[in-house]
Design a binder for these strands. Structure first.
Lengths: 248, 248
DNA sequence: CAAATAGTGTCTTTAAGACAGTATAAC
DNA sequence: GTTATACTGTCTTAAAGACACTATTTG
């Protein structure tokens, strides 16, 4: 054994010697829906947790892809979303979180621009897909759609905890990273107040218009991360200057 | 198939239908060594990557334990460290990161108080264990011990990237979370300048004594997160007030 | 005494929040 | 006109950094 070369070792290596867990990539897809932060959930059509709402995601193809690649693939297959940026959130590995066997979930977040969420049903594992508005205060997560409110038992696996984690991360990042711009309908043409509404949805509290303008000007316009296009919006009220985000 | 109950489904579920990756928990154990931030590495005694330096860690026992439990277990088995707090860092899942098979690493960080790192060799997989001082600027990681400097090829797997990630996270957190206190020799009896030296090691730059004192007083003493014990240190120079951290 | 560490205070800049007030559009 | 949104400015407070200065110990 000790005298083997690395090549000999690898030829004789048996990856099945130890029991291995299954690994999934799950994605918390968030968008703005009617002015509030919402998450995409898929109603499970098969066992386990049949009939409960779950995050999009699926099993990683071992040896073929990374968890991030699996997340992109599952997102495309289950929701049609292809043009988005995934960020790794955290990994959930409690051996009892899935009743089938030990299933580890590597969770990602995705932000979809307001109004650009494709809401068709797809995938043989998905009977239904829907956006649920997110409420999170004092660590208590609530999900609702129309009159319906999801209780703890309506959510599959530990996906409620994953969503909570994702919203907290988004709130933490939005103050100092340009994540919120990904929720704008168009980050190449937006007004300061559109951006303010996005931040209000993320933090679930009203922001002062003048102070928000200062924050945006200081942090984005002055350092050249965003510039006024010269065009103006035409809506109710005085026309607003349109800005575009500069891609790095 | 469609008419099965969940119990029937679970009885018939075969977890071996799809290939699964192996999963390890690896731990970036950091401490202060001679005034600089250092990381605990173990020289691999067996294939693969034999002779290279690797992070402590090992395979998760599927179905038996979470990744965090595996990290605690491996840390205790390989280094004897039992009393520490692990924080999940990130998951590394490139299918080629390990030459054996697809091995996913769920990485954790641990902070060990200065002078309390047990440095005996242990474990049948570990031929040697050592502390390497960390240098990280402009995203370039350097590890050195005495005269020795580790080059990229001396590190096993992608453990260099994991360490880089851990140091960046520690630097990001140290300004607003009490992580640095875990590196003090004793968080129940320390001087402000001991804490300053810890922060200087983390950020690898000198800090202003007066300003640091203000930062500590504002952020910890005033809100009651740390209190003066009344005792004073006796060393070279004027005796310094000793503080203790209030455990939440 | 020098050297070393401990501790205070001052000045400036920057950021954020509360809030008043003016500007320009649709109706 | 009202309503709605756009935009500017003022005041206060807090935090951070540069830096000068004083205090108390050892040797």
């Amino acid at each position: 054994m000790q005298d083997m070369s690395e090549q000999e070792f690898l030829r004789s290596y048996d990856p099945g010697r130890y029991p291995r867990p299954s690994v999934t990539a799950d994605i918390v897809v968030m968008t703005l829906y009617k002015g509030t932060l919402a998450v995409l959930m898929i109603k499970r059509g098969g066992h386990p947790e049949k009939g409960k709402w779950a995050l999009p995601g699926g099993f990683l193809q071992a040896g073929e892809e990374s968890a991030e690649q699996a997340a992109y693939r599952e997102l495309r297959e289950e929701t049609g979303i292809a043009e988005t940026r995934l960020r790794q959130l955290a990994t959930f590995s409690d051996p009892c979180r899935d009743p089938r066997t030990h299933v580890i979930s590597i969770a990602y977040t995705a932000l979809v621009p307001e109004g650009q969420m494709p809401l068709f049903t797809a995938g043989d594992d998905a009977a239904d897909a829907a956006l649920f508005r997110i409420g999170l205060s004092d660590g208590i997560l609530t999900l609702h759609r129309d009159g319906q409110t999801l209780a703890g038992g309506d959510l599959a696996f530990d996906h409620g905890a994953i969503i909570t984690c994702a919203v907290q991360r988004l709130r933490g990042r939005a103050s100092y990273e340009p994540d919120a711009f990904e929720l704008l309908p168009d980050d190449q043409s937006f007004t300061i107040f559109q951006l303010k509404r996005v931040h209000e949805a993320i933090f679930q509290r009203p922001l002062d218009a003048g102070n928000f303008r200062k924050w945006f000007t200081r942090g984005y316009v002055k350092p050249g991360k965003a510039v006024a296009t010269g065009a103006h919006s035409t809506q109710a009220g005085r026309p607003a200057a349109l800005y575009k985000l500069i891609q790095d």
